[in-house]
């Protein structure tokens, strides 16, 4: 199922165990540990996290590459880290 045009993530993060705003905070911390242009894969819950986290990341200059439904109530978000 993997899209061949998408890069392999440099790191993975699961934020299904936490709620807003710690969801976004955890993604920020994980991105901070990467270099610009590296890719992070995030597993997140449907609902508020899916609505808010991608939008907040775009606001901060990161690129959302893909958001895919895992069909189990969670999504996988692929993000390319923006420049400092």
């Amino acid at each position: 199922m993997a899209d061949k045009t998408l890069p392999t993530p440099d790191a993975h993060l699961d934020i299904t165990g936490v709620v807003c705003p710690v969801t976004f905070v955890k993604v920020k911390v994980a991105l901070d540990e990467l270099e610009p242009e590296q890719v992070l894969s995030v597993r997140l819950n449907d609902g508020e996290p899916v609505q808010n986290v991608p939008m907040s990341l775009k606001d901060e200059g990161h690129k959302v590459l893909k958001l895919s439904d895992n069909n189990d109530g969670t999504f996988t978000l692929l993000i390319r880290r923006g420049q400092d």
Binding site: P21, V22, F24, V25, K26, K28, V29, S56, D59, E60
Partner: peptide, 11 residues
């Protein structure tokens, strides 16, 4: 992360 979440969220 929870205590300082409102700080960290700020760009």
């Amino acid at each position: 992360l929870e205590r300082y979440s409102r700080n960290i969220i700020l760009k």
